[in-house]
Amino acid sequence: MTQYSLTEIEAHCRKAARGAGYHWGEVNDFGMAVRWLCAHGIDGTGEALMMLKTVDGNCDAHRPSANVLQGAIHPTICGLSLGCALADRGVDGLQNTILNTPIIAPLIAYGIVCNAVAQINRPALGALLGVDVQTNTPQMDVSTAVWTALNGFVHRTYVPATEESRLKGAG
């Protein structure tokens, strides 16, 4: 176990989601969600890794359409894109939402919405997502295995080092 700062956790997970194929705006929500979860004593990095390993490279296949939020059935949706869709609907969005589709990493969706919509009804959100969330003191210890596995995704976002890049890129 290594203790990381919340800033490190957020940045690491944001980059990892990018490495898994998500769009920039989405990965910002993802990083903030994992940060929120860890700040509230929840194993955000473990949930993040599980989701990225499951979705890896197939992000489009796990995105909800508008009718999925109205109860339509879809094979699976990921917590990241579901969380974004719910967060964008704001504090009243839960009232008109019905979910009948399995969710990969529902805690990520929970974190995205709680982070973005401070006034959200958390019990109702938990019920919608099928998660029972107990918050606690911050959880910033991350196992080497989880951090390293996330780093595998992160590393995909870096441009390989070359002599030309070293000479030209930074001036």
């Binding site: 769009h23 705006g25 989405e26 929500d29 508008a66 894109s81 869709a85 964008d88 969005g93």
Partner: peptide, 15 residues
Amino acid sequence: ADVLIQHPEHRQVAR
């Protein structure tokens, strides 16, 4: 919100 469900590629600049 409905635009962004179909077009998550615009999420960063929409924000």
